[in-house]
Each structure stands twice: as C-alpha cells, then as structure tokens.
C-alpha cells in the first residue's frame, strides 16, 4: 500500500513534428501537495500531463513516481486522470459511466455502489445519475468526468482544466474537496490558464512555450505580480527570451 506519491520530472522533453512542445522541464511534486501548471493555451501543459500519466513517451528525460519509473502498469490504479475533453460515453447514464470505469479499475462490486454514490454526491449529480450523458450540460459533463477521476481513490490526481465551465459555488466545493484529498496525502496536479485557480494551489509551475519559467510557492508568484495579473508574467518571460 502506497501512502503518498512523490513525482519527479527530470529534464523531460517532447516534440511533435520537430517542434518542441515541452523543453527540458524538471519539476518535483511532493506527496500531499497541490501543484498548478499555469500557462496560456498551447504552452505545453496538456502534453506535460500526458507525459506524466504515461500516455506519451518522452523524447528524453525520465519521470519517477516514488522510486518507480513510468510507464509502469503497477502505478495505473494509483492514478486518477481527467482529460481536457470530457471523455465520457454519451449513450450511457452517469451511473453506467462510473460503474464501467470503476470495474476497469478493479473496484469490488460491494464497494463500488457506495463509491459511486459518494462521488455523485460530491459533484452534486445524484439527482441526474440515471440520465443519459447525452442530455447533460457542459458543466455536468465536466463534473461527471471529475467524478470518474476520483472514483477509485487514487493517490495521484492529474486534472486537465478541471473546473472550466463549472459554476462558482460548485467550484468552491470542488476545491474544498481537493484540499481535503490533499490533506489525506493525495498529490494533485491541476492545469489552468487563469490565476483564480492557481491561488488555490500550494505551488505553481508557470509554463510558457514549453519551458518552465517559474516554480515556487503560489504566494511568491503573487508577490511577483504587483497588478495581480498573470499576463504580466508571460510578457516578462517573452522579454527575457528576446533579450537573451
């Protein structure tokens, strides 16, 4: 039984069609920490997440979970992943979607039903659980997708833009949920392109054009942006690139 998972990303690079999308990124995510990958669209956040979960193979560098190098089949059941697209079966109901993924993760049927009810309650979907996903709104789909990622109580959660399109009140409860998971030792990696989300994370890694340009406690990031505007950071990064 693994209690907490520390993820080390060591000098990882990945290019598509000779265009570098992730260049030489090194990053450590400690067990029980929420790290935010912050960057504009196209910065390479999703690619980095897909490298960490093992959906992509890095061109160079390595990613280590505790002391196991990925990809590794043993780690799969410790990972919870929410892709940017909803990744749901539209012609199944919410419960059927959850039950399907639950069984693939090998959750025993006597526990599964309770777990499904739990995550549905967290995501405020209990009333709609027997509706076909086809009839869900964008926000509901997002919540169901998140519920699937939480279902098997993973030790590591990788969430690609998890709260886009979710209303502010529910977003608040979802973040409370993330914090309580963190306090129980879950490592969480969240990507976002807005500062509002970043301030709820313990640490922020700023990614711009495939490079890691800042990686520290979120308070320090806020201190460096006097206007509280994240875009300033990107301008600063751009300037630095031109100057040297």
């Amino acid at each position: 039984m693994i209690n907490t998972v520390e993820i080390k990303v060591n000098n990882v690079s990945k290019s598509f069609n000779k265009k570098a999308v992730v260049s030489d990124i090194s990053l450590t995510i400690r067990g029980g920490e929420i790290v935010c990958l912050l960057g504009p669209s196209g910065a390479g956040k999703t690619t980095l997440i897909r490298l960490i979960i093992g959906a992509l193979k890095a061109d160079s560098g390595e990613i280590i979970f505790n002391d196991m190098k990925i990809p590794n089949t043993k780690l799969m059941s410790e990972l919870g992943y929410m892709p940017q697209n909803d990744a749901l079966y539209n012609d199944l109901t919410a419960v059927e979607n959850l039950a399907f993924f639950g069984r693939l993760y090998g959750i025993k049927s006597e526990i599964l039903k309770g777990r499904i009810d739990d995550v549905l309650k967290i995501m405020n979907l209990s009333e709609d659980k027997n509706k076909l996903v086809l009839n869900f709104s964008g926000g509901m789909k997002k919540r169901l997708s998140l519920a699937i990622a939480l279902l098997h109580n993973p030790k590591v959660l990788l969430l690609d833009e998890p709260t886009v399109g979710i209303d502010p009140i529910l977003r608040q409860t979802i973040w409370e949920q993330f914090h309580s998971l963190r306090d129980n030792g879950t490592s969480i990696i969240v990507t976002t392109h807005v500062m509002d989300e970043a301030i709820k994370c313990d640490r922020t890694a700023l990614i711009y054009e495939g490079r890691l340009i800042f990686d520290d406690k979120t308070e320090k990031l806020i201190a460096r942006t006097p206007g509280g505007n994240i875009e300033e950071l990107f301008f600063m990064a751009k300037e630095r690139q031109y100057n040297g």
């Binding site: 959906a55 892709p83 940017q84 909803d86 990744a87 749901l88 993924f101 693939l104």
Partner: peptide
C-alpha cells in the same frame, strides 16, 4: 475522438 480510449488506456485493463 472523445478521449474515452485515452482514459480507458490509463486503467489497468
């Protein structure tokens, strides 16, 4: 296209 295959591939199946 809906990315469910990617999600499927992240499970131990």
């Amino acid at each position: 296209t809906s990315d469910t295959l990617e999600r499927l591939m992240r499970t131990p199946v």
